[in-house]
Design a protein around this nucleic acid. Structure first.
Length: 371
DNA sequence: CCTTCCCGCCAGACA
DNA sequence: TGTCTGGCGGGAAGG
């Protein structure tokens, strides 16, 4: 009787974090959603709770979500992304060393290293037992902090900072791992673990089109390129949500400048980027600074599925992009155990969202979906 | 072979 | 204590 699982031997790709992220986004990126329950998400997406944590953590790092309470997150929406990234950038630059940049920013009010509602454990030592001998080999060495240092969320932020604050626009995960971990303390296996996590992060960010996987021009090594907003002007009077129909993401823009002299992360970059958590940036104002500075208007273009309440860029024409994805087979193959109404409408939602998204981007090969 | 990275054990954090 | 979070690394799918 247990042969009800038909075929579907097992496809690893169907369970990828990136796909799950897309599902998550399309599931909650609609009007009326303001809070998200982890249990709800897990059951509706058909995954274990553990995976929800992964996604939620990186989404929170980019500002899409915010932790509200246990089991509960607040949906901030894509509109919160630009600000979050801006904060990340400023934060990263600040850690770098304000000495280099005279006009670093106007609002230099005291601000913690973290911009979100992350809590700093101030109750570090409230132990009542002091005279008594140690119960066991207790390790009161910065219990919480240490764990938090290695959190996926923080790693995500630092990874993003790498793109925002450095002039490297192409980074391999291996280099990123080396840069991001403490300092020259290799440990070989620490890097391995870090790289694993970076793969996770990269998958999620890729599904949102923040980054894209490519290869080094020469080395052929796989690397990731930043696609998201490269640097918004951010004027003080930016109350009105941007997203005007101006320029969308600039893809081939960087092709114009053929300088591209140095992609590899030599020890110079490693030198600048040591430190524990904070990231150092190379503040030298020379080299290839011209890159894509000219486009200061560059509004942010959302990843998949622009929400309904957000002015999409030219959402009028379409029907010209052929559908490369077989949605019907998708719906039938995906998790046969969930044949409820929610999934039905979820998938139909996909088709719409993807259509419009495709027509806008018209990229080559966006996300690899199952077929 | 090497790269990618999913699964889920299990340990801290929290109620 | 139980539940919630989420590091962490094995080891298998993918190329």
């Amino acid at each position: 009787m247990e042969s009800g699982s038909k075929d579907i031997p097992y496809c690893r790709k169907q369970k990828s974090l990136g796909l799950l992220c897309s599902n998550f986004l399309s599931l909650y990126n609609r009007e009326g959603v303001e809070t998200i329950g982890l249990d709800d998400a897990a059951s509706r997406l058909g995954v274990e709770r553990r995976r929800i944590y992964d996604i939620v953590n990186v989404l929170e790092s980019v500002g899409i979500l915010a932790r509200k309470a246990k089991n509960r997150y607040t949906w901030k929406g894509f509109g919160a992304i630009p600000k979050a990234l801006e904060d990340l950038k400023k934060e990263g630059l600040r850690e770098t060393g304000p000495a280099a940049d005279t006009s670093c920013s106007e609002k230099v009010s005291d601000d913690d290293e973290d911009e979100m509602c992350s809590d700093m454990n101030i109750s570090s030592q409230n132990d009542k037992s002091d005279s008594s001998s140690v119960p066991k080999s207790a390790a009161p060495t910065k219990s919480g902090e240490n764990r938090k240092e290695k959190s996926l969320g923080l790693l995500t932020q630092n990874f993003v900072k790498l793109f925002l604050c450095t002039d490297m626009d192409m980074i391999s995960l291996d280099d990123a791992a080396k840069l991001l971990l403490g300092d020259g303390k290799h440990t070989s296996m620490t890097t391995r673990t870090k790289v694993r996590r970076l793969y996770d992060i990269a998958n999620v960010l890729s599904s949102m089109k923040f980054i894209e996987k490519t290869h080094h021009p020469e080395t052929r090594k796989p690397a990731f390129r930043w696609l998201g907003l490269n640097g918004k002007p951010d004027n003080g009077s930016s109350d009105s949500m941007d997203l005007s129909e101006s320029k969308k993401r600039v893809f081939g823009t960087d092709l114009t400048n053929t300088n591209t002299k140095r992609f590899k992360v030599d020890e110079q970059a490693a030198q600048v980027l040591k430190l524990n958590n904070p990231i150092r940036v190379k503040c030298e104002s020379s080299e290839n600074e011209v890159e894509r500075t000219r486009s200061a208007v560059k509004s942010y273009q959302f990843g998949p599925f622009a929400p309904a309440n957000v002015p999409k860029v030219g959402a009028s024409h379409d029907e010209k992009e052929k559908q490369v994805v077989d949605w019907e087979s998708l719906a039938s193959t995906y998790r046969p155990q969930y044949h409820n109404q929610a999934l039905k409408e979820l998938f139909s939602h996909y088709v719409e969202a993807w259509k419009s998204w495709y027509s806008e981007v018209a990229g080559k090969s966006p996300i690899q979906l199952m077929s």
